[in-house]
């Protein structure tokens, strides 16, 4: 269970990007976060695995408080949080197998990593997962030779190699064409079911969010203003999430403050 309480993130001295945000993800649900650019979706996701430092508040994953971890214990916690990126973030010049195994870097020694001496069970698991998403025949291909959809499959397998307790996906389909995009969304939903894994997806495509996820969280300028089943996301809710601009929201806040 992921439990976020009173989360605030503020860059520099400006207005917070996340404002006292509460969110709980239970079980193996697939949750999408929608909202216009600048609403804080990406920041929220990155606070969970601490690629971004939260300013205050608490994030608890299966009983572990994440916000105060440092060094080794932070790395140990990150191993349990898989992440899929918009730009894939694969190492272009390494093979698909090396990319997939890089999801295990938190578990194996640096020496084993440098020498590419991966444990047998890791290699077996990698082949299983690559087989599952249809990229096993690319094991020895350099990552930059693959198409966008194939690259994102590598990204997904890399994240799953971590044996994560939750999967974060930061606009995983934004760099893909519509058809490939639906395939990846379908894959994320199916894998979540098969591996009993909660998945949190930032997404711009509302149609895909409705079709592939169990729950939609709507954010607007650092706050959650909608949180319900996809069926309840009506025109009125959409307008509330997407109307206005971050700038307008900011000045609104200023007026309230003064």
């Amino acid at each position: 269970m992921l439990k976020i309480t009173d989360l605030v993130k503020r860059y520099g001295g400006g207005d917070p990007v996340l404002k006292n945000l509460d969110l709980t993800i239970e079980g193996e649900s697939v949750v999408s976060i929608i909202g216009s650019s600048g609403a804080g979706k990406s920041t929220l996701l990155r606070c969970i695995n601490r690629l971004v430092e939260p300013s205050s508040g608490s994030i608890e994953l299966n009983g572990t408080e994440l916000t105060r971890l440092r060094g080794r214990s932070l790395r140990a916690a990150r191993r349990k949080i898989g992440m899929v990126f918009q730009g894939f973030n694969l190492v272009d010049r390494l093979t698909v197998m090396e990319n997939v195994q890089s999801g295990r870097l938190g578990y194996i020694s640096t020496w084993a990593a440098v020498m590419r001496r991966y444990p047998k069970e890791d290699i077996r698991r990698a082949y299983e997962l690559m087989e599952r998403v249809g990229i096993a025949h690319y094991a020895n291909t350099r990552a930059d030779q693959l198409s966008g959809g194939e690259r994102q499959r590598v990204g997904v397998v890399r994240a799953l190699m971590q044996n994560p307790e939750i999967l974060l996906a930061d606009e995983p389909t934004a760099s893909l064409d519509p058809k490939t995009s639906e395939q990846i969304m379908g894959l994320l939903r199916d894998l979540a079911g098969e591996l009993k894994l909660p998945v949190l997806i930032n997404i711009h495509n509302v149609t895909e969010a409705k079709e592939y996820t169990d729950r939609i969280v709507g954010m607007r300028y650092g706050r959650i203003i909608f949180d319900d089943r996809p069926a309840s996301l009506d025109k009125e809710a959409m307008d509330r999430i997407y109307s206005g601009s971050p700038h307008a929201d900011r000045s609104e806040d200023l007026r309230q403050a003064s």
Partner: peptide
């Protein structure tokens, strides 16, 4: 680099 950090790599 971010991807490796996110995976908990030393």
């Amino acid at each position: 680099v971010e991807a490796m950090r996110a995976a908990g790599a030393p």
